[in-house]
């Protein structure tokens, strides 16, 4: 299996640094950006397998970013990440095509498991589309 490539979008620099170190140690390629706009910019040139997206960010918020990502890169799985999840933001994210929804705090194993599942999901979908 090829290495999984992940983009993490969160406005908290400490969190980005930490998660990059932890995921890299588990053989996942990680890039990080701090805003939704930067994420869209990044994705324009670089395809990734999974985007991990904080729901609440200054500027373009998580849901708006999610909508744009789904529009521009439908083959990228998005996992929403939130420290203060509400049912409403949850259903909005999921109905706009987020693969999964993770509440902070989470364990790194749990996150990795979900990243793998999300990645498998998009690969299966891509395969279906090629076969169709």
């Amino acid at each position: 299996m090829t290495r999984i490539r992940v983009l993490v979008v969160d406005d908290e620099q400490d969190f980005l640094k930490l998660i990059k170190r932890r995921l890299t140690r588990r053989n996942i390629d990680v890039d990080t950006v701090a805003t939704g706009a930067e994420a869209l910019e990044f994705l324009r040139d670089t395809p990734v397998d999974v985007v991990i997206l904080d729901v609440r960010m200054p500027g373009l918020d998580g849901i708006e970013t999610l909508k744009e990502i789904r529009k521009r890169r439908p083959n990228t799985a998005v996992i929403m990440l939130t420290g203060h999840g509400s049912m409403q933001s949850g259903i909005e994210g999921i109905s706009h095509g987020a693969y999964d929804y993770i509440l902070k705090p989470f364990s790194i194993d749990d996150l990795i498991e979900r990243i793998r599942a999300a990645c498998e999901h998009t690969q299966l979908r891509r395969k279906d589309r090629e076969e169709a």
Binding site: M87, I91, G97, Y99, Y101, H121
Partner: peptide, 17 residues
Amino acid sequence: DPPLLRQVFLNILINAV
């Protein structure tokens, strides 16, 4: 399909709440 199933469960749970 896990994400679709999540959507359904959350919908029904929100209604219940």
